[in-house]
């Protein structure tokens, strides 16, 4: 599942590398962000498989910075149900520390859980939830 937030930030959520939710700001450069996020999925997989052997305190859901590019930073997060969250932010935005990113992912995860617990949502479908959209929008506004 893939999630993608851009603004110079983008958020994407994936399940089994199939996108569940994509959102980016500004919208005109969407393809570039898609490309970046899909590229990062390999890094996510790599990190997960390496983590299986790691110590308990290192088995966190938040994966940290996946890789930096010239203009953007890509962060990853994987839930226990193997849903991948990927976030792309502008690297010129220095206000975003690791901790802020982590708490953003937590918020995202909380909202995703609410979506999952909605009986009218079929797991694996694209997420079309107003509450979820609202949360992402507020997060992006804060970021941009």
């Amino acid at each position: 599942m893939e999630w993608f937030l851009v603004t110079s930030a983008a958020v994407i959520l994936f399940l089994q590398n199939y996108p569940l939710y994509i959102r980016s700001v500004p919208t005109e450069n969407e393809l570039k962000f898609h490309y970046m996020v899909h590229t990062s999925l390999d890094v996510v997989d790599e990190k997960i498989s390496a983590m299986g052997k790691a110590l308990v305190d290192q088995r966190e859901l938040y994966l940290g910075l996946l890789y930096p590019t010239e203009d953007y930073k890509v962060y990853g997060y994987v839930t226990n149900s193997k849903v991948k969250f990927v976030m792309v932010v502008d690297s010129s935005n220095t206000a975003l520390r690791d901790n802020e990113i982590r708490s953003m992912f937590r918020k995202l995860h909380n909202s995703y859980t609410d979506v999952m617990c909605n009986p009218f949502y079929n797991p694996g479908d694209r997420i079309q939830s107003r509450a979820f959209d609202g949360m992402v929008t507020s997060m992006m506004i804060q970021v941009c």
Binding site: R59, L61, N80
Partner: peptide, 8 residues
């Protein structure tokens, strides 16, 4: 499982 560590 929201707040638990990843399963081994």
């Amino acid at each position: 499982t929201k707040d638990t560590a990843r399963f081994k």
